[in-house]
């Protein structure tokens, strides 16, 4: 920010910090460190609980009444299918909406209605999307408590996030580049395809992967549409019942036996590792694509 940089020197000319001021500063630093250190404790605590349980058979077994035999296979496969389907539905819609709002929409009532609506949707609690999915997909469209109903529900939940991320990315592309393309005789769609999208892609992809990694941890809307908590088979088609990793974890947490809590901790570790990998992928993609563009 330009405003701050030019004024930096002025702000450094405050009178020397008094004792009260130093204490205040210390409280500020503590406020920053405290949540992060709690996060570290969370991770260390969960790792300590879960690591003994984390082995190959845990990943490749179905859930079981016996905690030491139970595994996350159906949950893991369910999560992967669900996220794949969600991405397939939500990404084209989200990017399309973002392109429309950034490149096509005129500044009128309808556009501002859509904009306000999207920012409001982003603030709707995720469990409400679950109720929408239950009423609309499970009942009215009679998709049942199926993979496709779950994916549609999650897609609607992700849509505002993807649209906002994609718009931010498209906004950063200088107008001169579009004008240059028009000057070369390209029309609007060609300009979008050949100039705007390639340049916006790193930002869009990062936003998409981050929202998908959020989706993989979503629990409440899927429970609401009736994803099952105990499934000892793999989903075979779009209309199969399913379970996901967070739901399996929730199921284990809500049991009174401590042995199941250990399973939950191991499941959490797997979930966090998947999210970590997705975030790393987002960063890697961004760096790689940015390099190519320059």
């Amino acid at each position: 920010m330009k405003r701050r940089e030019s004024g930096k020197n002025v702000l450094n000319q405050y009178p020397a910090d008094s004792g009260v001021e130093k204490a205040f500063k210390a409280i500020g630093i503590i406020s920053l460190i405290l949540p992060v250190s709690l996060l570290l404790i969370l991770i260390i605590d969960t790792t300590a609980d879960g690591i003994p349980r984390l082995n190959w058979s845990f990943l490749t077994s179905f859930p079981s009444r016996f905690p030491e035999k139970a595994g996350i296979l159906s949950a893991l496969v369910g999560s992967v299918y669900l996220i794949g389907l969600t991405a397939f539905i939500a990404i084209p819609l989200g990017i399309g909406a973002a392109i429309y709002l950034e490149e096509y929409a005129r500044k009128n009532r309808i556009t501002s209605l859509i904009e306000i609506n999207i920012s409001n949707l982003a603030g709707v609690p995720s469990i409400i999307y679950g109720l929408l999915g239950l009423g609309l997909f499970v009942r009215i469209m009679s998709l049942g408590r199926s993979l496709i109903a779950g994916a549609l529900t999650l897609s609607l939940l992700l849509l505002p996030m993807i649209i906002m991320a994609a718009r931010e990315s498209l906004k950063t592309i200088p107008q001169e580049l579009r004008e240059a393309a028009y000057a070369l005789g390209a029309d609007k769609w060609m300009t979008i395809r050949k100039v705007v999208l390639p340049l916006g892609l790193p930002g869009i992809l990062t936003g998409i992967i981050l929202s998908l990694s959020r989706a993989i941890g979503e629990t409440a809307p899927l429970i609401t549409i009736g994803a099952l908590t105990y499934i000892a088979f793999l989903p075979e088609s779009l209309t199969s019942p399913f379970t996901t990793l967070p739901i399996q974890i929730f199921n284990w947490i809500s049991r009174p036996q401590k042995e199941f809590h250990v399973n939950a901790a191991a499941g959490i570790l797997v979930l966090l590792i998947i999210m970590l990998l997705m975030n790393a992928l987002a960063i890697w993609l961004r760096i790689r694509l940015q390099k190519r563009n320059v």
Partner: peptide, 26 residues
């Protein structure tokens, strides 16, 4: 090219449909 704009508008309109869907379902 002429159709693209309308297709994209439909994508953007989905969000409005979602809101209406939420309200009607509830």
């Amino acid at each position: 090219e002429r159709g693209i704009g309308s297709v994209l508008l439909v994508c953007a309109a989905v969000s409005v449909v979602v809101t209406i869907g939420i309200i009607l379902t509830l």
